[in-house]
Write a protein that binds this DNA or RNA. Sequence first.
DNA 1: CGCCAGGATTCGC
DNA 2: GCGAATCATGGC
Length: 285
Amino acid sequence: MMKATIEKGSLYIFDCDIDLYRTFNCGQAFRWKSVSDSVFTCVLGERIVTVSKEADCIAISPCENEIDKAFYTHYFDLERDYTAIEDYMLSNTVLSRCIPYAKGIRILNQAPFETLISFIISANNNIKRISKTIDNLCAAAGRRIGDTNHYTFPTPQSIADLSIEDLLKIGTGYRASYIKDTAIRICEGFPLEELRDLDYCTAKSKLMELKGVGGKVADCILLFSLGHYNAFPMDVWMKRAVNALFFNGKQVSRDELCALIESLGANAGIIQQYIFHYARQIGIK
DNA sequence: CGCCAGGATTCGC
DNA sequence: GCGAATCATGGC
């Protein structure tokens, strides 16, 4: 059990080996900004959240009550035993290579609609520009918080209300119509939150009904916002990493890939994120 | 400048 | 069901 206390508007978690930098920069989230080496900030829901770490203690604010604490516990996936996952990886000759580069990553439980739109934007795009485009989208259609430079992520309706020209100006490129169409589908009642309770394959198929959502983007949404930890997103980095790490550089068949993912078990998606970050850190080719 | 990016869609077979 | 062309655009 994690040790935690709420004090003076902050939540303190003790004996926590999360690596904040890796967690916020491993390609699962696009809006966290670093204030310093150990302090990061992001808008979550309607408020500006700040997280810092000193030794093995992380501080999260604002936190006023048990409801806030429960939100952060879920968001940062604090109840999961990541040590067990990392120990499993260390026991595997191939996976152990990722640990020095990726130890301390947590899979965040992000807001599904934000994750959906963010990963539609991610298609055939680079992480720097994805972040910038999302920031533009928030400034254009989100709500400004006080007189700060922070904005909430837009509601489905406020994105649906944007014109294609607006979305192009923001920098979404050819994904503009996908974003608008998908936002409209959500407004019309697409059961995004309910995908959490469906089995993985059914939830993935349902997501892929949305414009701009193919298999890889669906896996990202399932893994980063809907609790499907077996989802295993395969982008260009992961393809290179899997080829290099598990198949000695040879091309992989679909069946071989499925067998590999299956062998990684219920936490395959979490392991995937460690591999992904490793691949990017070493600049795998 | 040319190539790349957490790919999806569309089309032809 | 599978390969190839196409898509918009900043980063490097």
